[in-house]
Every structure is written in C-alpha cells, then in structure tokens.
Simulated assay, not measured.
Amino acid sequence: MRVVFTKGPGTSYDIAVHRDRGVALAPRNGPGGHPYLPHDLVHFLVEAEAGIELGVYGRLAAGDNGLFWPADPAERAKAARRRRSRPVKPSPRAKADMAMSEQLAGIAVPVWEVRHGHARHLPAYVTAGEIPAVVDRIVSRFDDYAGRWHALPAGGSLTLTW
C-alpha cells in the first residue's frame, strides 16, 4: 500500500491511500496543525516502527476503509448503508493497537520537539525516565521525514509504502 501526503498551504495537507486490497479510496484532508510532523504521517511512522498491525494503516492495508470513503459513488453509498445498518465495532486487539498508536504518538512528538528545540519542556504527562525505548526509534524516523516535509512547497508530496 502506498500512502501519499500532499502538503497544502500552512500546515494543511491531503492524504491519499493506494492499496491492493479493498475498494479504491478517495483522498481526504488531514487535520494539519504541525509544520514538521503532520498528524497522519506521525501515525504512519509510529505504527510502522512499533510494529502495530491493527492501527490506522494496518487496517487500511487489510481492506478496512477507516476514516476514508470509497472513491466510487456507488461503493460510497453501499459503505454508508453498511455503517448505518451494522456499525463495525473494532476487535479488542484493534482497539488496543489504536490506543498504543495514540499513546506512542503523544509521547514521541513532544520528545522530538524538545530534542529539536521546538519546545522547551516535555508535557507533564511525559516523564523523561519513563520513555519507552521504541520512542527513540520513532523519533529517529521522525528525523528522516520532518525536515523533508517542512521543506516541501505547497503541492509537494511524500510517498510512503506500508
């Protein structure tokens, strides 16, 4: 699966997913907010580095639509009917993987920001002595992409493979 992050003006961005399994998905806007580490890129890197199989990207690769809608209007209508008639509840493992993705992202981003001088202190919920070892690996992955993302002009893209 290929995931394309396309920079917009300011801190906005679009994300497109091209996968081998499941219906084709329409691109969507990302939540923005960070000039170096877009939210969805953070989760991609966290999940890849931590080996999280049923987070956002593992579920998308397996055919789940996640926060995306099918590109085909007929498929979109079918998906909307399915969601209304029988909402899908994630498995306990998927819930745990999503929670782990959120937890690691919530630690790794502030650690990266402090290490690169974008913040002076870690937030109170991050105790320096209790940072999991995987966070250092995740922060190193952030280092690989943050500068490249920041340097992109509006309309420029990064493509990552899951």
Rank of each mutant, 00 (worst) to 15 (best):
M98T: 10
S140H: 09
D143E: 15
N65G: 08
V111N: 05
V135H: 07
E130Y: 04
Y145N: 02
A133D: 15
F44E: 08
R28A: 14
E75S: 13
A62R: 04
A154S: 14
N29E: 15
E53C: 07
A105E: 14
A105R: 07
A79V: 00
T127R: 11
L54E: 14
G63N: 03
A62I: 00
H121P: 01
A50C: 13
Y145T: 07
I52Q: 11
R19Q: 10
R83N: 13
A133S: 11
V42Y: 05
G22R: 05
G55F: 06
H18V: 12
I52A: 14
E49I: 07
G30M: 06
W149L: 05
G129A: 12
D20H: 11
V56H: 11
K7E: 01
F44K: 11
V4I: 10
R93C: 05
E75A: 13
A26S: 10
N29G: 12
G66H: 06
V56N: 15
H34F: 05
A96R: 08
R82D: 13
G55Q: 09
V4W: 02
H43G: 08
T161F: 03
L104F: 09
A62V: 00
A50Q: 06
F5D: 04
G155F: 00
P110H: 08
H39G: 08
G147R: 09
I107N: 00
A105F: 13
A61L: 04
